[in-house]
């Protein structure tokens, strides 16, 4: 079971969190024209990386904040966690 450092609450067990997918995907702006291809990329297409991956988790049974977690998908090593409003660098 992973040990995830919530930037708001500290180190907590994985079972307090729920996974939310790739954190680098940006939702297209509302009301803006977008091609079918770009929209499909936003909705469906993900890279499924092996290695360092920025992903979203929600601290569901804690502070309920969505956070960004940089995790190695092969080793589960967690390098960094960020608050929702912090930019991935």
């Amino acid at each position: 079971m992973l040990h995830i450092k919530c930037p708001h609450c500290g180190l907590r067990s994985q079972n307090e969190f729920s996974y939310g997918g790739d954190a680098t995907v940006k939702r297209p702006e509302l009301g803006k024209e977008i091609s079918d291809k770009d929209w499909d990329n936003f909705v469906y297409n993900r890279k499924s990386l092996r290695g360092k991956h920025w992903e979203l988790w929600q601290h569901l049974s804690g502070c309920r904040q969505w956070i960004k977690v940089q995790r190695d998908t092969a080793t589960h090593e967690i390098f960094k966690t960020l608050k929702a409003n912090e930019e991935i660098s």
Binding site: S18, G20, R27, L56, Q58, L60, R64, Q65, W66, A84, N85
Partner: peptide, 13 residues
């Protein structure tokens, strides 16, 4: 609830 929180915290803060 999670859905609303997602958009409020991440997409439209």
């Amino acid at each position: 609830l999670s859905h609303l929180e997602y958009y409020l915290q991440l997409v439209w803060p």
